[in-house]
Design a protein around this nucleic acid. Structure first.
Lengths: 154, 154
DNA sequence: ATGTTAATGATAATCATTTTCAATAAGGAG
DNA sequence: CTCCTTATTGAAAATGATTATCATTAACAT
């Protein structure tokens, strides 16, 4: 197994928090650290299964839960009835998603225009105060049709 | 059954589109039109079940699907593993949600500050162009802790 | 090297949602 | 108003994602 910077960083985080470094966790971390897709638990299980047929789906779910808890990955839902996971980017690379309702394609969007970041900071401050709500994070999902799907309909 | 303006409006929409007006549909429409909560299918089923024990959960699901298709209601997910439904507000009352990760409380937020609406219009135009993506709608979810839950922790 | 105990994997359980299919009822035609 | 077609319904079973159980295994502190 080849480890990259990101997966080593994640391993360190696990250890620091007192979790054991096991083969399944290493494999899953390594795999996640090398993809920028928004994967289903099953996707991850199937990909890993080729080289590691002894790692079960249950363990994939458990590891994903753990990584979410440690904020190393994010869990999303786009109304598909199942969850998608992706590596957490650095803070400055906070991003939003475009989801194609036709084919399920997901586009990451993080080239914020103008003062978009400043804007959300402002909204959050306003909401926190008005609704006495301790906001931890936000998600913005844009739904519609991607280029290809839109053209197919014409 | 007492019908209000909103439910009559919704009935009309169904009929116009060629769907039959049945008792279960009328009951569900009437119930939905009188609540501003974000309900689970099961919630709706249970509430209705008191007066209409013959209306099944399956029919509730089917009716909700239909209403979503007709854009009369919206379907949301907040990472709970089940969907929530709410009446579609008028366009000018487009709103976003604050979701309490502790107790599941949902707060509607539609008193947009400054030019928030203008801002989203601008973002959408930018994204549509850059990613050649036909955006139909967007969702903004703020996650955190509501007042009560936050105080409980201190 | 070893003992403690967290982590795993196989299996079964759970839970939301969907499918199936025979019975019913909406609503147009006569 | 009655009949006919067919959309809609309800009960039950099926599906599919995720979680719980529990005996076995392996991490890692000592």
């Amino acid at each position: 197994m080849r480890k990259n910077k990101k997966s080593i960083e994640m391993e360190k985080c696990l250890k620091t928090q007192g979790f054991r470094m096991t083969l399944p966790r290493r494999v899953i971390l390594d795999f996640l650290s090398k993809t920028d897709e928004h994967l289903l638990a099953k996707d991850i299980y199937l990909k890993i299964n080729k080289n590691h047929p002894d790692i079960g789906l249950t363990t994939v779910y458990r590891t994903l839960d753990l990584l979410v808890k440690l904020s190393l990955i994010n869990k999303f839902e786009f109304g598909e009835g199942q969850s998608r996971y992706e590596l957490t980017w650095d803070l400055k690379e906070h991003h939003h998603h475009l989801f194609c309702l036709k084919c399920g394609k997901i586009i990451d969007y993080n080239d914020f225009i103008d003062d978009e970041v400043k804007f959300f900071t402002k909204i959050q401050k306003f909401l926190s105060k008005k609704y006495k709500f301790n906001i931890q994070n936000h998600e913005v999902h844009f739904y519609g049709k991607c280029n290809q799907c839109h053209e197919l309909l014409h």
